[in-house]
């Protein structure tokens, strides 16, 4: 009996997006990153091309994190007051593919620092590492609209990834990214319809679709991961079916969301039955990351080096086994 061929063929492909620019391309990066390119369901690559490998961006903050649990702070304790050193450590010691510089210090409640100071930080990190940069605002729309233009201009030509544009506040950031040659994160709160709409709105301003990365906001294990998973899965299936407005790489904020979970951050004495905190936290982050990889995530923002190491190993295995 002939065995029927059940291989699915998809008509769409995830758009390729490039992060970072080399000297020849007008930047100063030694390493660039390509995302997207998949034309089959993640890791079902006998049906097509799995595209570029997912990458890990390690977060670097421009303020000393106050609420981090000891387990998370420990690997960074010597560098937390210097974004430059922090970024270097992430790349050289912990193997980060790129750096996500979070400009928390300009937030009105977290220091309300000036745009000049943010620019200095961005420049120092760009000098310290050779990998591409994600530059993430403080998520206060008023301050971001003041600070991001300066920051964007200071990094002109580096083809950074700037975050984030929302349905209600996208024009400034889209215009900046267009003018200064950066990529743009579009953000929607776990809502596939709004994600599609914000992508349409941004491209309506003349912004090229191949410079957009989508961010659905993220839920950690135990805190809404299934919603994020199914939205991202639906986006990817739509992409493969030919919906070009959703055929874009996906970013997940794994680290921050995972370490908000009490299961990750509770100290040993607070939760004696839950296992050791130094294992538990990184595991929580690892499981969240590995789960979201299956839904088609392309960039994982992560925090703990142990989790980064484990997830890198998993990515390697996923690609090697399917080769």
């Amino acid at each position: 009996m002939e065995i029927p061929n059940i291989v699915e063929r998809w008509s769409g492909e995830v758009t390729e997006v490039t992060l970072g620019a080399t000297k020849e391309e007008g930047g100063t990066r030694k390493k660039i990153i390509k995302l997207g390119g998949a034309n089959c369901i993640p890791y079902i690559d006998f049906e097509g091309c799995p595209g570029h490998r997912p990458v890990i961006a390690m977060d670097v903050l421009d303020i000393v994190p106050e609420e981090w649990p000891e387990v998370l702070l420990e690997p960074f304790k010597e560098v937390v007051s210097s974004p430059r050193e922090w970024a270097k450590k992430c790349v050289e010691e912990y193997g980060a593919d790129l750096i996500c510089l979070k400009l928390d210090s300009v937030h009105p409640d977290k220091g309300n620092k000036s745009a000049e100071e943010a620019v200095k930080t961005v420049q120092s990190v760009l000098q310290a590492v050779e990998v591409p940069l994600i530059i993430w605002g403080c998520d206060d729309p008023r301050r971001d609209n003041e600070v991001m233009p300066r920051v964007s201009q200071a990094a002109t030509g580096e083809r950074c990834l700037l975050a984030s544009a929302t349905q209600d506040n996208y024009k400034t950031l889209a215009a900046l990214c267009l003018a200064d040659g950066h990529n743009l994160v579009t953000q929607a709160p776990v809502d596939v319809n709004i994600q599609k709409q914000v992508n349409i709105l941004v491209t309506d301003t003349g912004f090229p679709v191949d410079r957009i990365v989508m961010f659905q906001t993220t839920g950690a294990l135990g805190y809404g991961i299934e919603y994020v998973y199914s939205i991202q899965e639906r986006e990817r299936l739509a992409a493969l079916s030919g919906d070009k407005w959703l055929a874009l790489p996906i970013l997940c904020n794994v680290g921050y969301e995972s370490w908000r979970a009490k299961e990750a951050k509770a100290r040993d004495e607070e939760a004696p039955g839950w296992g050791l905190a130094r294992e538990r936290g990184p595991l929580w982050e690892t499981i969240t990351a590995v789960t979201l990889l299956q839904s088609g995530a392309d960039i994982l923002r992560m925090l703990h080096p142990k989790a980064v190491k484990a997830v890198k190993k998993q990515i390697e295995a996923l690609y090697t086994n399917n080769a």
């Binding site: 319809n193 599609k196 349409i200 639906r234």
Partner: peptide
Amino acid sequence: KQIYSDSFLKV
């Protein structure tokens, strides 16, 4: 057959 967005007619 397509995911809704406010601009679905245009898309």
